[in-house]
Design a binder for these strands. Structure first.
Length: 473
RNA sequence: GGUCCCGUCGUCCAGAGGCCUAGGACGCCGGCCUUUCAAGCCGGAAACGCCGGUUCGAAUCCGGUCGGGACUGCCA
């Protein structure tokens, strides 16, 4: 059987990391089996669907590297399409189901339906227990599918194994709204049939809907696809992933400078791994090793710390020029202005040192602003820890003396000069160098000192040391 | 309430009856390196929810129990 899978986001919000992860697994499965990956825009919720969200979701998918297949026979421009373009098809399908007796119009009011649900609940039954075809046929209102009550719905879920539902626990759900628009259940099922979807891998939240989709598919005269229900994503506190846990929109990670490769890798490790001890792996490795059967059943927690670590792994693996390109906008953001080419060349002199200690790009930007703008204020903790100590004034005086007539203002020259100063005054290297670092960079955390001084230049370096000396009184 | 799903270190993943005194990763703790911070290296603490059963032998199979989650809509 050839593999044809789809990703079906609703354009009612940004692409959630959980949805992205489901898309990723579908994509991996398709690529592993050299099958087809389709993106379907489930915009049957006309109230909340917007073009803006649709564009954003597609852009996020592209950024992650999840390309969908053109010419997949779905009629859309690029192997993606909108359900809103197919309303006639869904309506026709629903009406045919009514004509064949598989579905019916339901004129009952919301109040009547509520009564039936309440009654079922009070009897300890499934709420939909009594939502069945009324004795008197109607010819308007929403269309409901009549669930055959004579047999259980059983299916083999690729990740969960055999799952079964009793028909009395399935209500006759609405497939076509009274305004003629299809519900998600109808549109999704009809599309899976029409586009010959072989495997449906989606979030576990849809597991209770699956028996309905199977019954509907059969009513349409087809065999159901293979289902795989993926575990949901949670926060590290075990609660549902929400804004409290940080960004939940994939796009936020993109705009914060996370590398797509890192996000791809991290998302893939949530519920799956290529083997016992590989954590960092390429797309190719993932494609090679991936199988839906190996996906975990249990929900996974999204851990921002681990993602940050992984991003750092990828940042360090970047070619220097790629790192420079990626970090530049973040330096400029930290600066609050664009960088002149002259300044940029200065940065490039120490960029490899910055790259080594970068996990997240915004942090890297903040670490180098001292190169291009005056120190407006010293970092509070750094000052307390380093400057508010005995003998610091003397150390700065000595540094000024040692450096003011230094011939070779290079990292090597600076190191020689400062080390002989250290020997002369007889204090530890750390104790002597830290005050200089704070004076020059404003913080006790910075790129390596000698290189920083070299790039900053003689005048500004000496100026800053002198100014810090004055602050000390 | 009802239906369904899930349950290995704090977190992610490995483990498909003996290879498990449970392995790898993040995080955490300690050390080395070192001008800071990172990186790197070395070491450490840390888990099979619980109770029964099957078996010579169970993290792995079965039952129960407890806990968590999803769904329960003319949203998806």
């Amino acid at each position: 059987m050839s593999v044809r899978v789809r990703m079906a986001p609703s354009p009612t919000g940004y692409l959630h990391v959980g949805t992205a992860r489901a898309a990723l697994f579908n994509w991996l499965y398709a690529r592993h089996h050299r099958g087809v990956f389709i993106v379907r825009i489930d915009d049957t919720d006309q109230e909340r669907s917007t073009q803006e969200y649709e564009d954003e979701i597609l852009a996020s998918l592209r950024w992650l590297g999840l390309d969908w297949d053109e010419g997949a026979g779905v009629g859309g421009p690029h192997g993606s399409y909108r359900q809103s373009a197919r309303y006639d098809r869904y309506r026709t399908a629903a009406i045919e189901l009514v004509e064949s007796g598989r579905a019916y119009y339901d004129e009952r009011s919301a109040e009547e339906l509520d009564e039936l649900r309440k009654r079922a609940k009070s009897e300890g039954r499934h709420p939909g227990h009594y939502i069945r075809r009324p004795d008197v046929a109607a010819d308007s209102g929403p269309i409901r599918l009549a669930i055959p009550q004579d047999e259980r719905v059983v299916f083999d879920d690729v990740v969960r194994g055999t799952v079964s539902f009793e028909p009395q626990d399935l209500d006759d759900f609405v497939i076509l709204r009274s305004d003629g628009s299809p519900t998600y259940h109808l549109a999704s099922t009809v599309d899976d049939v029409d586009y010959e979807i072989s495997h449906v891998a989606r979030g576990e939240d849809l597991l209770p809907s699956t028996p309905k989709h199977i019954v509907l598919t059969r009513a349409l005269g087809h065999d159901a696809p293979v289902y795989a229900h993926l575990p949901l994503l949670f926060g590290t506190d075990g609660r549902k992933l929400s804004k409290r846990h940080g960004a939940t929109a994939l796009n936020d990670y993109r705009s914060r400078g996370y590398l797509a490769e890192a996000v791809f890798n991290y998302l893939a490790t949530l519920g799956w791994s290529p083997d016992a001890d590989t954590t960092i792996f390429s797309r190719e490795t993932a494609i090679e090793a991936f199988d839906l059967e190996d996906v975990n059943k249990a929900p996974a927690a999204f851990d921002p710390d681990k993602l940050a670590w992984m991003n750092g792994e990828y940042v360090r693996g970047l070619a220097p020029e790629d790192f420079n390109t990626a970090v530049r906008p973040h330096v400029e953001t930290a600066m609050g202005r664009g960088l002149a080419e002259e300044e940029w060349r200065q940065f490039e002199q120490i960029s490899s040192l910055v790259q080594e200690r970068t996990k997240l790009f915004p942090e890297a930007g903040e670490q180098v602003v001292f190169l291009f703008s005056d120190i407006e204020s010293y970092d509070e903790n750094s000052w307390q820890k380093v400057m508010a100590k005995e003998g610091v004034a003397e150390i700065l005086d000595e540094a000024l003396r040692a450096l003011s007539d230094l011939e070779a203002w290079t990292a090597a020259g600076l190191e020689t000069a400062l080390r002989s100063m250290i020997e002369k005054i007889g204090v530890g290297a750390g104790k002597a160098l830290q005050p200089i670092r704070v004076a020059v960079t404003g913080s006790s955390v910075s790129p390596p000192l000698f290189e920083s001084l070299a790039v900053l230049g003689r005048d500004r370096s000496l100026e800053r040391i002198a100014r810090a000396r004055e602050e000390l009184g």
